[in-house]
Design a protein around this nucleic acid. Sequence first.
DNA 1: GCCAATACTAAGGATTCCTTAGTATGCGGT
DNA 2: ACCGCATACTAAGGAATCCTTAGTATTGGC
Lengths: 93, 93
Amino acid sequence: MREKRKLSQKQLGIDAGIDPSAASPRMNQYETGKHRPDPNMTERLCQVLGVPVAYLYCEDDDLARVVASFANLNDKDKRKILSMIDQIESLEG
Amino acid sequence: MREKRKLSQKQLGIDAGIDPSAASPRMNQYETGKHRPDPNMTERLCQVLGVPVAYLYCEDDDLARVVASFANLNDKDKRKILSMIDQIESLEG
DNA sequence: GCCAATACTAAGGATTCCTTAGTATGCGGT
DNA sequence: ACCGCATACTAAGGAATCCTTAGTATTGGC
């Protein structure tokens, strides 16, 4: 259903709307942590990547997995996760 | 266990290390979306608030709940959520 | 009303980003 | 090996954004 092509830094930037002549350095500056994209660009990059914006800011890998997966679940499965969390918290909270 | 005091914008900034004389306008600029904190300040604000950085970037409320809750779970409960997600994805992925 | 605390805004110097120009590295083909 | 091309990466400065100072507006308690 969802094709998983491999993107260069530059192509990812272009797909997100950066001028092709500037896409390579900008994307590289983002990936190396030298600079960070403004909110609009962050949103567009995440759309291209198919992940929620929050995914980029997940410190630990488990949280990142949860965020990436949860965003792609259907409503029923989302409710399943949410109610499981409710249950856990009601026991220990 | 965890006390939930009510913080003014200014006090939150001070607790995160902003100079008291500048905390009020800066925090207000953040909350109104006029500017955004740099990465260090973002981290510190989130520490004071007790939420993961990713929480600030959650577009929808359900995702925000999942992020905030998951971060405070113990390892066993985290594994429970993760394996549930694994299971769901293996069925529909 | 008055006072204090909080919320908010303006403007400019300080900082960071985006663009241009260019170098470096990796890799397939001959 | 050499060439050619795509990709990765860097430097530097004009462009954009942020942080600070100074101040106004609003809210809540007395």
